[in-house]
């Protein structure tokens, strides 16, 4: 079975470490915040200028001056700090954020990522995504392995305009956990009940498959 969105978030949460500063993108990455292991302290960075994002506010706590990068109302966590956009991207570009999780349309075997624009459709902008992929060393991309027509999103070379070139080393899809190095995808884990054959079939870029590919456990 392909992983559910929540299972994908749970799997990514296993990459968290105590004391990590983490930037979570919109969509599945946001769900990771719900699965921080008990007893672990993680500080969430929001690129509009907040380090230490708390849960959504109660109706009484809603404050128009306190939002996240998705423009949603939020709260601050204990120990939070607030700063300007320049400061926020200084910590992103300076490599101070320990883990970045974001979605994508395509990733290729060179570690390039396309996530912000589909030609012919309206271009809304890259927001902070280009800065995040250029600045972070530890990035996990999360997306479905193939589109709804069955076309692979793990490609020899991205077909869409890039967000960043050669910057992605880890991908979690609904079918597998993969690493990227030496110009190839390397299969690390598979979703429970998903065969290696299915992953091979749905990976267009060159894929290295070890003798034993463990199943993820939930």
């Amino acid at each position: 079975m392909a992983l559910s969105r929540d299972q994908m978030a749970i799997r990514i949460a296993r990459e968290l470490q105590d004391g990590y500063y983490v930037n979570l993108g919109i969509g599945i990455p946001t769900l990771v915040a719900n699965h921080v292991p008990e007893g672990m302290e993680v500080m969430l960075q929001s690129e509009n200028g907040l380090l230490g994002m708390g849960p959504y506010p109660t109706e009484d706590e809603v404050d128009a001056d306190l939002i996240n990068a998705g423009k949603q109302t939020v709260t601050t966590a204990k120990g939070a700090s607030i700063f300007s956009s320049a400061e926020s991207f200084a910590m992103i570009r300076g490599g101070h954020v320990d883990l970045t999780v974001l979605g994508a349309f395509e990733v290729d075997a060179q570690g390039s990522i396309a996530s912000w624009m589909i030609p012919g459709k309206l271009i809304k902008g890259m927001g902070g995504a280009m800065d995040l992929v250029a600045g972070a060393d530890n990035i996990i991309v999360t997306m479905t392995h193939a589109d709804k027509y069955g076309n692979s999103k793990l490609l020899p070379e991205c077909t869409l305009p890039l967000t960043g070139a050669g910057c992605i080393k880890q991908v979690l899809t609904d079918l597998a956990y993969l690493e990227i190095y030496d110009g190839k995808f390397h299969l690390v884990e598979r979703a429970p009940g998903v065969s290696v054959e299915e992953i091979i079939e749905k990976t267009a870029g060159e894929l290295v498959v070890p003798d034993h590919v463990p199943e993820m456990e939930f």
Binding site: Y56, P57, V62, D65, I67, K71, Q72, T73
Partner: peptide
């Protein structure tokens, strides 16, 4: 006016 673009809340 300080309008809110996306009002997200949790149960109090």
């Amino acid at each position: 006016e300080k309008r809110i673009e996306i009002r997200t809340v949790r149960e109090g």
